[in-house]
Amino acid sequence: MGIHLLYIEDDAEIGAWVNEDLGGRGYEVTWLQNGERAVEQAAGCRLVILDVMLPGLDGFTVGQRLKKAYPDLPILMLSARTSIDDKLEGLQFADDYLTKPFHPDELAARIEVLLRRSGSYSTEPLVLKHLLVYERENRIVNNDNGEEILLTGKQFQIFTYLLRHLGQILTKEQIYEGVWGDPYLDGDKTLMVHIRYLREKLERDPANPEIIETVRGVGYRVKA
């Protein structure tokens, strides 16, 4: 049984294609061609993919209704409207905004990120090189020697934050503000220090990190 997604798209061709593609990736998709019954259909779904231009109720209205009924349900807007205004309006309630035409791989990647962020982890551990990460149990095991790796509170928060944005590069400001919740102060070395200790615990060779990758001049990334 795959993860249940609600997909609202009026265009038959695109709808059929996305439906098939996501089905092929192991998701269970409910596809609606308009937003009239979206709220009732959303029950039991883990994520909603929503088109903006819909007959009858438009996507923004449907999205707002869904968010009101299920505040924790992630919504991904999938729209042919690309203006900044549309994006900003959409992102007032939606968690992500993808414009058409899109590559199905990108859609799948974004769905994965959103599910991860909303805490819909699978019971299977996430495999990162030599690490097994049990996200549900907040447990990290070194697969080389079977030992569990214990992290301090902040180290764990930083690592989780990076995992939640798996594959994305995060700048030091983004990580700091995401973890500490305060605005980043220039020249603050706290984050660098934490990442150094984190690497010492996680990496096989802390001098050549493989898990937490440094993207020179930009930030850090954890790749799957």
Partner: peptide, 25 residues
């Protein structure tokens, strides 16, 4: 004007998306 452009964008992009889906398939 905004609505026109939004609609235009939609009308142009929808077939593009369809073509893309076929290319992908």
């Amino acid at each position: 004007r905004k609505r026109l452009i939004a609609n235009l964008s939609h009308d142009l992009r929808t077939p593009l998306t369809v073509i893309r889906s076929h290319v992908y398939s």
